[in-house]
Design a protein around this nucleic acid. Sequence first.
DNA 1: TTTTAATTATTGATATATCAATTATATTTG
DNA 2: CAAATATAATTGATATATCAATAATTAAAA
Lengths: 144, 144
Amino acid sequence: MENLNEIVFYSLDKAIRSYRQFAHQQLSAHGFDVTVDQWLVLRSIGENPDYSQHQIAEMTFKDYASLTRIIELLVKKKYLERTMHQHDRRRFNLTLTDSAHQVLKAMQPVIENNRKHALMDISHSDIQQLQKTLSQIIKNCGIT
Amino acid sequence: MENLNEIVFYSLDKAIRSYRQFAHQQLSAHGFDVTVDQWLVLRSIGENPDYSQHQIAEMTFKDYASLTRIIELLVKKKYLERTMHQHDRRRFNLTLTDSAHQVLKAMQPVIENNRKHALMDISHSDIQQLQKTLSQIIKNCGIT
DNA sequence: TTTTAATTATTGATATATCAATTATATTTG
DNA sequence: CAAATATAATTGATATATCAATAATTAAAA
């Protein structure tokens, strides 16, 4: 009983790592030069073009320092552009380049396929149940 | 429908990160100088004193290169000792120091408490269900 | 038995996570 | 308004993940 509690965190770790490895391999195999994390950040900025880096970091559950570095790389790869913010000179506007829109579009089917593959032989209700349990764990570990 | 598949991987990632952050904070708060990953490696070596680094890496689901570096740190912290292998000069014997045994013992209640806290308000059968679904995801993403 | 294969571990390069400190700018407040 | 405080983002240091290349040694094959 106590043992299952131990194993379940081990499995949690292993499951997400397995998925990330699998997803990364698929993306490389299709010739994309965007990591899973970079993809997440790109998509998040695309959906929220007016967000600050701080807000993007919260959305993607990334550390602010990490996000700064991921954004640097995306700018270097010409997937992102930074322009000055009109009212607040501490901030930047982040905008996806055409190239980013293209690559996101091209990656979409691969990513959807990855998810489908990873959830193979798992029923919809089991996925709902998984979601529910994960949410509770997130809540339990949240800063009080 | 498709959306849940997306969210569930996001939650998976967020759940394990939340847990790791929470666990790390608890360990620091109790004054331990061992990270979650270092703890995992120490415990794994303690339970399998005759394993090669390769085998420890597989047990802990860690990259070989990562493991080399984690072990370096543990040797530096005087929690591990490396001695020559009798028959195979490519390998090392890894042994926990007394200091490591002590710290593992002292950490144990904190770690058990972390798990209990993270699984608060989740029934035993829900944990079993979680375990089952995670195993299927691991299987689906597995290369081997 | 020499050559080839496989195994064990390390190292270098790059990406990401985390913590602490710092810079620049905005906002609040006395 | 000036001083204190808060916010946005960056930077440095250290830990870990991943990939590719390498070194040392052992095992297998010719």
